[in-house]
Write a protein that binds this DNA or RNA. Sequence first.
DNA 1: CCGATACGGAACGGAACCGTATCGGAATCC
DNA 2: GGATTCCGATACGGTTCCGTTCCGTATCGG
Lengths: 205, 205
Amino acid sequence: MTELAELPAVPGAARTQGRPRSSRAHEAILEAVLDLIEEGTTVEALSMEAIAARAGVGKATIYRRWAGKDELLLETLVKLKGPPTQPVGDSVRADLIRLLSVVGQKDQRAVRVMPCLMPEVSRSPEAYRIWQEAITEPRREVMRDVLRRGVATGELRADLDVEVTVSMLISPLLLHRMVRWNPRLDDVDDLTEQIVDVVLRGVAA
Amino acid sequence: MTELAELPAVPGAARTQGRPRSSRAHEAILEAVLDLIEEGTTVEALSMEAIAARAGVGKATIYRRWAGKDELLLETLVKLKGPPTQPVGDSVRADLIRLLSVVGQKDQRAVRVMPCLMPEVSRSPEAYRIWQEAITEPRREVMRDVLRRGVATGELRADLDVEVTVSMLISPLLLHRMVRWNPRLDDVDDLTEQIVDVVLRGVAA
DNA sequence: CCGATACGGAACGGAACCGTATCGGAATCC
DNA sequence: GGATTCCGATACGGTTCCGTTCCGTATCGG
């Protein structure tokens, strides 16, 4: 998918001759994208000119690395999210709380970026595919593992519907932390625990 | 193009003299906005020119009615989502299933429009307020009522956290139907029932 | 040192929209 | 019939951004 190689700068090409691409410019461009989005620019309204200006970079320097805004955004997003949180293995409950407590809490910029991606994701099948593969699916898979292990150890019932359970666990937190769907939940301090406990009770043997 | 007889048309203004505004044009403009969004135009990318062209209307006809795109969009949105579904009162479970089964199913256009509003909602406090007051809050209130009645009749336990429960019930369906957050749920045919049953079990006395 | 490439910056022609103005014609009230 | 307002259409100047192409300079490998 995307190459994050750094020292030689960018692609796997045998770019031996001449001045190497500046990794500093590379980083500055990605940071500029995040900064602008965080400040309220929609993904769609992001202009290459604004990105270049913010990064202190010529537009040509951007086009030398990415074919267009979409490619740039993809690399920005993948870099932003990093790898999913990993469970520890104490108990199903502790692992779920651990995984869920970081939803929308790791990097505040991700919270700002995600809603801006929704129009693109809901419109373009390609954007949807990338979003699924790079962002949501890896995180769901981690949680599926926790639930499956719980089934294996007998902590959870054998006929548990893993997909529905994952969705029930993540969705309320995602919706609250991403778009603050219900502002009254702001005051609930043990939201994660409440959700996990209700779901675990609901699916108990 | 010949004009048919028109109703008195639009606002409560004392507009006695001259040709009245065409309610047909009014409707055509609102429909054009929805059509364009449904076809994949982002709210932000909506241009007055495109709306006018699609509606078969001059731009001046739009500006004569609304001061700008924001006002036009607001009226479009409020018209789109009509009043919330009302519960029947048989049982808590039946009412919840009734309310939840229409999430994202009433008007397919609403499903397309909502993700496009997320960037605006997450960026502008004013847009967030309107979105809450006009869209989400009235629907939550209906569901709160169902839960409160359940508490009153003893079907639900007395110390139920209504806000958290509402969020747990709606969020998974909302996320699935709006942005298809987890495509594996496509095949689950009794998703609504499963969610309601797990939650009700989880919060049982 | 030299050749090659990247750098930041500026300018380019072209496209899309903005919001306004103006047109001849149509609809309505007095 | 006459005054008034709205109609759809088109044109306008102004703005923003696109993606490309030039600069003159900086930085690498050989």
